[in-house]
């Protein structure tokens, strides 16, 4: 596969959220504001790309019995770097994201891509796959967050769009709304992109 194919595949055709149904936990928690989603998405992309690269580079040396522990350790290390970086350089955002940055470690996307791709492919391809999966995930997050923030707060990225006349939809601020928005999003994608027939 060409590099471009790998990217398109991981970002769209085999998108982690709408096709593989991974990474749902964080999709629900951080999508109340678009800014949070963007930062979370970038954090995941960064950790995923680097973790994929490292795991792939070590794949010939890693013994089978400790494979999962090694993957977990490497993923955890990169996520902690992201967490510490945010705390030091963007403290306000770090407070907003709070415990959810730590939950990137158990974000099934990272482990899933490590097992499915990085363990069998070379480092450069794995890196591109990581970037693609991460950006695909970010795309889904931003879409959900756009709807939640617009109807829940009347703003997008903090910029007020709807004025004071708009009565905020409280359900959009609560997490369960993300379930419904994601379900409808998957429905539309299944019909239009994959053209699933009855």
């Amino acid at each position: 596969m060409t590099k471009k194919d790998i990217f398109i595949n991981s970002a769209f055709r085999e998108n982690s959220v709408w096709k593989q149904i991974l990474g749902i936990c964080s999709s629900l928690a951080v999508t109340n504001l678009m800014l949070n989603s963007l930062i979370m998405g970038l954090g995941v992309t960064f950790s995923l790309a680097l973790a994929n690269f490292t795991i792939s580079a070590l794949r010939t040396h890693t013994p089978r019995s400790v494979r999962m522990m090694v993957q977990t350790l490497i993923i955890a290390a990169y996520v902690i770097i992201v967490d510490v970086f945010l705390q030091a350089n963007m403290p306000a955002i770090s407070k907003q994201l709070g415990p959810y940055v730590g939950l990137i470690i158990t974000n099934c996307i990272l482990m899933g891509r490590a097992e499915a791709f990085a363990a069998q492919n070379n480092p450069i391809d794995s890196f591109i796959d990581g970037i693609g999966s991460g950006l695909g995930y970010t795309l889904v997050l931003l879409t959900i967050a756009a709807i939640r923030e617009l109807f829940g707060f009347g703003s997008l990225f903090g910029i007020q769009i709807l004025g004071d006349w708009w009565i905020r939809w409280s359900i959009m601020v609560m997490a369960p709304s993300a379930f419904f928005i994601l379900a409808i999003f998957i429905w539309i994608i299944n019909n239009k992109y994959y053209k699933v027939k009855a």
């Binding site: 749902i24 369960p176 419904f180 994601l182 379900a183 998957i186 299944n190 019909n191 699933v196 027939k197």
Partner: peptide, 14 residues
Amino acid sequence: AGLRGAGISLIITG
């Protein structure tokens, strides 16, 4: 068709 599997599970969970 588009909702089978993941979609309907998400709605139920919601």
